[in-house]
């Protein structure tokens, strides 16, 4: 493989389950050492895409080359060159940390003389020193995920597919997991990682946003953040978010309104007057703070991109 060729290359990749199209003509290129964030709402087709790239699902159409091998024609060669972490934790809960590592070391035929060192590396990386003999079922979520990553990299695969590796993991452990991902990438490992935590997109070199099985946008976080939302973004506080949202969505000049944590984000058309919003809410008896102009976050961009993608005629 020449240096310039993408490590993961997909063209027109599609997967249909009966009448349902989970992934629809997806194009994807990932260069060596890149960390690509795969972002999209639940059911967007992230897992299906990753499974096709791992050779676990057969594409209905299109092609994908991973580490130089065709996923449909050479799935075994693909499997030997990848590490995969499935969305659901899938190590053996009734085996200990060391037993899981040794098992995958055997399965991947890690040279015997190197196995001890690599297991030690994985244990250190996962922060599981002193817990080698603990049954995996007794570990907390963050530790389990790091151990799963440790098992997936024992054979030093050039490509890693991580399907929502941080879901259900507490924020501090998530942060630590991303440090691991970035250090692996620094060693030249190519990584595609899906997540539904928008804030994690910041850790990626590049982001691929998909919805309904189709590519919505792709680019670096900086590029995406520059995306023109088509208006000005304001943040509002309210004790009754739901009621406020309903009113705001119907209000003149509002392009889009959404709940972000305990606040509301309101996208106003360039000509609209933000000062008109508060009286409108007050007229309905809804208490709300004044709209404050804010810089759009990546998440704002994603929400906008997805809604524009879903209803292109309205945007």
């Amino acid at each position: 493989m020449s240096d310039g060729a993408p490590v993961v290359h997909a063209r027109g990749l599609s997967k249909r389950f009966g009448d349902f199209t989970a992934v629809d003509r997806l194009d994807l290129d990932i260069a060596k050492g890149e960390v690509v964030g795969f972002i999209g709402p639940n059911g967007a087709g992230k897992s299906t895409t990753i499974r096709m790239l791992c050779g676990l699902l057969r594409p209905s159409a299109g092609e994908a080359i991973v580490a130089g091998f065709d996923v449909a024609r050479q799935p075994e060669a693909v499997r030997a060159h990848i590490g995969y972490m499935s969305q659901k934790f899938s190590l053996y809960a009734d085996l200990t940390v060391a037993e899981n590592l040794r098992f995958f070391g055997g399965i991947y035929r890690v040279p015997r003389e190197e196995l001890a060192a690599r297991m030690r590396f994985a244990v250190t990386m996962a922060g599981l020193e002193g817990r080698e003999t603990a049954l995996v079922r007794t570990l907390a979520g963050g530790w389990k995920q790091r151990l799963a990553l440790g098992c997936a990299i024992l054979h030093r695969p050039p490509v890693l597919f991580l399907d929502e590796p941080t879901s259900g993991v507490e924020p501090k452990a998530r942060r630590r997991f991303w440090d691991l991902i970035n250090s692996l990438a620094a060693d030249g490992v190519t990584i595609l990682v899906s997540t539904h935590y928008m804030d994690e997109a910041e850790y990626c070199n590049r982001i691929v946003l998909i919805d309904g099985g189709r590519l919505v946008a792709a680019g670096s976080p900086t590029e995406l953040r520059k995306h023109d939302l088509g208006g000005a973004l304001f943040e509002m506080e309210s004790a009754t978010l739901g009621a406020a949202l309903t009113v705001l969505r119907a209000a003149p000049g509002v392009v889009e309104a959404a709940i972000f944590g305990d606040r509301l984000h309101v996208l106003l058309a360039p000509a609209a007057d933000p000062a008109a919003l508060a009286p409108l809410l007050a007229a309905r008896g809804i208490a709300a703070g004044p709209p404050m102009p804010i810089t759009p976050s990546l998440e704002d961009v994603f929400v906008r991109l997805v809604s524009r993608h879903r209803a292109p005629e309205a945007a």
Binding site: C54, R79, A80, S86, S90, L91, I107, Y108
Partner: peptide, 14 residues
């Protein structure tokens, strides 16, 4: 049932 098969079939095991 336990989901461990998904991991196992992603490896080169025959």
């Amino acid at each position: 049932e336990r989901g461990t098969m998904e991991q196992l079939i992603s490896t080169p095991v025959t």
